[in-house]
Design a binder for these strands. Sequence first.
DNA 1: GTCTATACCGAGATAGAC
DNA 2: GTCTATCTCGGTATAGAC
Lengths: 220, 220
Amino acid sequence: MATPGTPTERRAVGAAGPKGEAIAAAALRLFLRDGYERTSVDAIAAEAGVSKRTVYNRYGDKENLFLSVLRDTYKSMMMTFRGIAEKHLGDVTDVRQDLTAFALEVALTMTTAPDRIALVRLIMSEAPFFPGLITAEQGAATMTGIITACLARLAGEGRLAISDPAEAAGHLVALTINRINARTMFGVLPVSDAEAERIVTSGVAAFVRAYRPAPPGPAA
Amino acid sequence: MATPGTPTERRAVGAAGPKGEAIAAAALRLFLRDGYERTSVDAIAAEAGVSKRTVYNRYGDKENLFLSVLRDTYKSMMMTFRGIAEKHLGDVTDVRQDLTAFALEVALTMTTAPDRIALVRLIMSEAPFFPGLITAEQGAATMTGIITACLARLAGEGRLAISDPAEAAGHLVALTINRINARTMFGVLPVSDAEAERIVTSGVAAFVRAYRPAPPGPAA
DNA sequence: GTCTATACCGAGATAGAC
DNA sequence: GTCTATCTCGGTATAGAC
């Protein structure tokens, strides 16, 4: 119980302290690259520049380390996405343009960073073996929840003809982000930025066509 | 070299012969359930009711068995989908209705059979570790290729306003099949048939709205 | 006291040898 | 079909170093 109040004191368990964070970073890197089963605790310890014993002291066992690291990373990913959404969907001036800019930034953030792809792939891969890895659809709910609120607002203003905002949000995500995700998941070939832009632009265009409000009156 | 000409003679390598098929079936079941790393050759041999030696005689090693079994299963899945597509899209009378029936049957085939979900998940999981597992987007190409042809025909007949049939096919798949896939991939909770029907119906409706041809003239 | 290093244990894996 | 060789893994224990 020496030096109470110092930073080193509140590291009951987990990633607190520089050592703990080095372990977490190394574990994340290897798990993302090799998956759960193919990653050994020895390798993690070596990658972190730490004794294996330290890994076990901090995280108990491999499974706990895996869950801890993945949950933290996933949470931070969701924070990033939330920021992007608020930036673009805070106040919408041009519907098609702002939705495109939003989806495009999300898409490029995923496409540019192979970590994101690997993270999603890893979560999907291990979901059957670690029930409760993600709090069950909490992921999609976070994303579509924000979009749903925005679409409901646009519908209220008469700028889009949407009766079920949640369903419409699902459609928007499906036509843009999920399409790129699906492309990257199967093969390993990365989607180029130009291709991502094409997909997003065309997806938002289709979305806007599907949900455009009826014209006020017959013209031409 | 006894009994030449009998079925047991032409088993150069692979799944020919009843033993080979038993091995393939057992391997598929265990790989789908447990993944590649968590499945042992011992378990496969036991499940197939054969000696482990027989497994190695037929398939060489674990990796080859995995690739062989997955490719065959994937091919057969694609054949199934092709059949469904031709059944519903051979000649389209009511666009919305026929597209819905098509997508719904595909969706229910995937939703009802957990094998399909597990297969897709397994391919995604192991894609980085077995380059060339699937011939790179050949999967999506098969599906969307068929749909593309159908949509091009409908566009030619003026029944849908489609300038890029391949892109439109991507949108249709994204709004229906891929949406259900995404739902099942993250969590493990299965999507109910009713939920699948709701998603497909709403997805096709949005698709038809996005690609409906312009009305011939102002009415009302 | 905590971290490092290393040796160690039992289990289970692939692959091959009778 | 069994049996064995060899390897790796998760996890622990034992030693010493700052």
